[in-house]
Design a binder for these strands. Structure first.
Length: 888
RNA sequence: GGGCGUAUAGCUCAGCUGGUUAGAGCGCUGCGUUCACAUCGCAGAGGUCUCUGGUUCGAGUCCAGAUACGCCCACCA
């Protein structure tokens, strides 16, 4: 079998993935107490994967494969998120497009059926795509945020939190999306800057204080006028109550003083609308103002407000402005810039309104049950907020890059109670039942369905129609996926009988959470909050945040711009290995990545290079007979062998160091450089010339080490080559590279001095090549070289090698010059100088400059006095080396 | 209003705790293809590390300030 010249990933990748999956090595079967686990951030079950997913999968797969090769029991748990609102919206859209029906028209049960169909379809697509990129995750443990086990966990946490008084039902202001017909959490609100009209007016003719607003229609619900206590214009009114007639509606307005009011804005007086403004609601709570709701969940003015009743918000606004004008109450209409709040899922403007919802109290103190956690926090009681802050402050969780610590603290410190109920159909039902008996109305919070009211015995019970915020369930992801709470119940029995540990014990806390920084608040923070509460331990020890993938111009990839790159298409065209490298190399944590096709193509070329290096070594091996391959012995090593082994050892050290410190890009670059510019460009080229008996064995040895180190980065091509080598070498069993032990060191001890010989040979060859390029001499030119430098022996000894690699003929002093004609000889003379000096003239000048700077430093008494000894020593050797090179 | 990030070759980016003559990929220029690979090889050009100060024996790296771009949070009456 001869290998094709060009590596074709399309033919190979699927086959390799199947082999891996069938092997069972994706599962953490190894019995060892060294465990490593990652909970894969579950992609939304809404459709296809994008480059963001590809980045996360590539990075996580590197960690996972590396740890697996290091001999740990590795669990990488995949899954999908039901993504409540996002998924419901998408299915609603499809339904409308297909049948023209709304979800209300087909009803809850039927609608949920079609959502589930959509989800299982989408999950199927996602599974395929996650495989395409080479993810070595444990499919046997795949989870879905809505599957039964996770639902149990969700209910369990809800009930416990309720019992601890952390979950309450309250009538509070919420962010309401009139299109989704649901609440949104604070961080699910986005802002869009736009110019709005700022209306300044008086409520009626008798009211002495005028106010400014962009939303006149909400003023129907005003219950106060707020002014700054320092504002002299209004000081006399503070505490007064005005009964005004606002366009036919009677309002009772108390004048309150609050520092939050900006004296310079508008009239300096603020109409307080507690029911429809988050800030005003806070004012109302502080000053104990009544809350009057005037806009309903449909975005219409509520009934009973005269001519404005049931008008849409925009219409009401027009009408009110028009009436203010006719009644001459409107003073001015100004343009103003403001941020419109919009829904992060559908971009509809948010309507803040008061509503009866379920909340998680983040400030209420609870007892800490876990002893270790108590120590970490340093207190016996703490609020959810303080717990989540404390574990990060104590260093229980390490966030990479560090700067996100600060961002996390800021967010967490300012966190308000979390509204967790959503008025959508798709999601985890709220485990709350209401007794329908009018004189009872008991609220029952229960893990299991309730059919009888425990208080009155009534059987007319209704479950809360709402569902939970999707982040409530994804906040439990690291442990709900490992069997909590049911597995913990069996824990003791299992331990006593046979010492077997369950998944939760083995893999929680997970080792690393790798995700994009854009969901630090949505998800990472919530996981920390929920897990420290529920388990008394952190969900993960390290958080690695990657950047967002952008296009070549740095823009976000989006459908509307049409600048998106489809990872699946790229994998098809260039192979998964190339796509992985393009997403890893040249990136740093927390910083955005720009991706474009040329970059992927460049790494495709590298993959092909690896393939051809292997091809050369494999094909070469075949042409040799067994007895041509003697045992490799260290004393037989040539200069080039010593050099490449020395470099290999350096590489191994660097790669290990960089992987340990999450410098994936650096590790990848180092391997790239070694393979291409050391192994291929120099060593193999030299090996072609210096055909010595042990060469094949050494090439084989180096290639195998490289394949091991490359494997986490480019698993497909390396596994394929490994397999071919196994077959060629007559291995009985095809051992998979994916479980080959990781390289920690090499079996040869080479000193730097030994390695230097080949470095010098390289310099000689490069010098000759440079000289040739400058003189534009024909490649087959024969040159004589009068060697009288210290390199004579080295050149003499390696004459054949240098001649072949530099494509010249070296004639030493002793050789006769009879083969030259006059023209060649004149060229040769110019050459001669350069070659014997080793450096072209320009380089010599540079070198001299360098030596001067080194000398200046070493003559500086301050430097000698204050610099560390190692640095001085280093500089001295550098100077010696540089001087030696100059005299050569 | 509060906070954060980035600024290094034509382009995209590395450069770890300050210590070689500042690097890579792509692009560009010249030469080269029987002999692993043209998805290739060899050679080359290209940088006052945004600016101004400071700390230091020594600054791309640390500190302060300025400029430009970007992001997050809050507010938005």
């Amino acid at each position: 079998m001869s290998l094709p010249k060009i590596y074709n990933p399309q033919e190979i990748e699927d086959k390799i993935y199947q082999t891996w999956e069938k092997s069972g090595f994706f599962r953490p079967n190894k019995s060892t107490n060294k465990n490593f686990s990652i909970a894969m951030p579950p992609p939304n079950a809404t459709g296809e994967l994008h480059l963001g997913h590809a980045v996360m999968l590539a990075i996580q797969d590197i960690m996972v494969r590396w740890q697996r090769m290091k001999g740990k029991a590795v669990l990488w748990l995949p899954g999908t998120d039901h993504a409540a609102i996002a998924t419901q919206n998408k299915v609603e859209k499809i339904l409308l497009a297909k049948t023209g029906q709304t979800r209300q028209a087909i009803g809850r049960t039927k609608f949920l059926e079609s959502v589930n169909d959509f989800v299982s379809n989408s999950q199927h697509v996602i599974r395929g795509q996650v495989r395409k990129i080479g993810s070595s995750c444990d499919w046997s443990r795949e989870r879905y945020t809505l599957d039964p086990g996770l639902s149990t966990a969700v209910k369990e946490v809800f009930v416990r939190m309720y019992q601890d008084g952390l979950i309450y039902r309250g009538n509070r202001i919420v962010n309401w999306c009139p299109r989704c017909m649901s609440t949104l959490a604070d961080d699910e609100v986005e802002y869009k800057e736009e110019t709005a009209k700022l209306y300044t007016f008086a409520y009626d003719k008798n009211c002495p204080i005028k106010i400014s607003t962009t939303r006149p229609e909400t003023k129907l619900g005003d219950t106060a006028i707020a002014v700054n206590p320092k504002d002299l214009r209004y000081k006399k009114f503070i505490g007064q109550i005005f009964n005004v007639d606002f366009l036919g509606q009677a309002l009772t307005l108390k004048v309150i003083a609050d520092n939050a009011v900006d004296i310079k804005f508008g009239t300096g007086a603020l109409g307080v609308t507690p029911a429809h403004s988050l800030a005003d609601f806070a004012l109302a709570e502080k000053h104990e103002l009544p809350v009057i709701k005037v806009i309903d969940e449909n975005g219409r003015i509520i009934k009973g407000l005269g001519e404005f009743s049931e008008l849409k918000v925009i219409e009401a606004r027009k009408k009110i402005v028009a009436e203010l004008k006719t009644k001459k109450l409107l003073i001015s209409e100004d343009q103003c810039q403001h941020n419109l709040s919009i829904c992060y899922r559908c971009a509809t403007p948010i309507e803040p309104l008061t509503s009866r919802q379920w909340f998680v109290d983040v400030n209420k103190k609870i007892k800490i049950k876990n002893e270790k956690l108590k120590k970490t926090i340093g207190k016996k009681t703490a609020s959810l907020k303080k717990l989540a802050l404390g574990v990060v402050k104590a260093g229980e969780i390490n966030i990479i890059p560090k700067r996100f610590n600060k961002i996390y603290f800021q967010w967490m410190e300012n966190l308000r109670d979390w509204c967790i109920s959503r008025q959508i159909w798709f999601g985890h039902p709220i485990p709350v039942y209401y007794c329908q008996k009018s004189n009872c109305q008991e609220i029952i919070v229960s893990r299991t369905p309730v059919s009888k009211c425990p208080k009155c015995g009534g059987t007319k019970l209704k479950q809360d129609p709402d569902t939970l915020d999707t982040w409530f369930s994804s906040g439990l992801w690291t442990f709900s996926t490992l069997g909590w709470p049911s597995e913990t119940k069996n824990l003791k029995i299992k331990n006593k009988n046979n010492g077997i540990l369950n998944d939760l014990e083995r893999f929680h806390p997970t080792s690393v959470m790798e995700t994009g920084y854009d969901i630090l608040f949505f998800w990472v923070a919530r996981m920390i909050l929920m897990t420290t509460y529920a388990l008394g331990e952190v969900p993960f020890k390290t958080v690695y945040l990657h950047g967002l993938v952008r296009d070549k111009e740095g823009r976000k990839m989006s459908k509307s711009l049409g600048n998106g790159i489809d990872p699946v298409k790229m994998i098809k065209k260039y192979g998964a290995d190339a796509v992985r490298l393009s997403l890893i190399i040249g990136t740093t944590p927390g910083n955005d990545v720009r991706l474009y096709e040329e970059k992927i193509a460049a790494y495709r070329n590298f993959i092909n290079k690896i393939w051809n290096i292997a091809r050369y070594i494999i094909e070469n091996e075949k042409s040799k007979t067994k007895n041509e391959k003697p045992q490799l012995k260290i004393k037989n090593l040539q200069h080039s062998d010593q050099w490449i082994l020395y470099e290999l050892e350096k590489l191994i050290k660097n790669v290990n160091h960089n992987l340990e410190h999450y410098h994936f890009s650096r590790a990848g670059e180092d391997i790239y450089d070694f393979i291409w510019h050391k192994l291929a460009d120099w060593y193999i080229e030299a090996a072609k010339v210096e055909a010595v008996p042990h060469q094949q064995e050494l090439l084989d040895y180096i290639l195998k080490k490289c394949l091991v180190m490359l494997h986490p980065f480019v698993p497909f091509v390396t596994e394929e080559i490994w397999g071919i080598m196994n077959i060629e070498q007559g291995a009985i069993k095809n051992n998979l590279l994916m479980i080959e032990p990781w390289v920690e060191k090499i079996d040869f001890k080479i000193t730097r001095a030994q390695a230097q010989n080949f470095v010098k040979i390289q310099e000689i060859i490069t010098a000759i090549r440079n000289a040739r390029a400058e003189q534009k001499l024909a490649p087959a030119e024969i040159i004589n070289c009068l060697i009288d430098s210290r390199l004579e022996n080295l050149i003499d000894e390696n004459r054949g090698l240098i001649e072949k690699m530099a494509k010249i003929k070296i004639l030493t002093k002793s050789d006769e010059l009879k083969t030259f004609d006059q023209i060649n000889l004149s060229h040769a003379k110019i050459y001669l100088e350069k070659i014997t000096k080793l450096e072209p003239a320009k380089d010599t000048a540079q070198l001299e400059k360098y030596i001067q700077s080194l000398e200046a430093r070493l003559n500086n008494p301050d430097f000698l006095a204050k610099a560390p000894k190692e640095v001085i020593a280093k500089e001295k050797t550098r100077l010696e080396e540089a001087r030696a090179r100059l005299t050569q």
